[in-house]
Amino acid sequence: MKHLKFISRTVLVRNENVDEACRILNRIMGSEGFLDQYRRTRYYEKPTQMRRRINYEKCKAVYDEDMKRKINFVLRKNRPEPFPGCY
């Protein structure tokens, strides 16, 4: 389906604050991976480079997930003793 112009990838400017609108647009484009894909397709990516990149991304995702769990565990709230090990 063709994306409707001025509906998709559009941010309305509020209170004449153009900078904020641009920043939000950039943020959304970046977090959805559009900008990365655009940058990646400027030059041909050799199959070996692609495999290396994908493997790296997989490893990073696993590490990030574990690290996130760890941080959440350390920062968890409503525990019986609020500051364990600190007297």
Binding site: T10, V11, V13, V18, M29, F34, T41, R42, Y43, Y44
Partner: peptide, 27 residues
């Protein structure tokens, strides 16, 4: 905006493809 135009919306229209033609070789 500095020139005095009022901008009401900002749209990103960058052509992005997930199965593109083969781009030029790397520099």
């Amino acid at each position: 905006t500095m020139g005095g135009l009022k901008i009401i919306s900002v749209t990103d229209d960058t052509p992005i493809s997930w199965n593109p033609l083969r781009p030029r070789k790397q520099r």
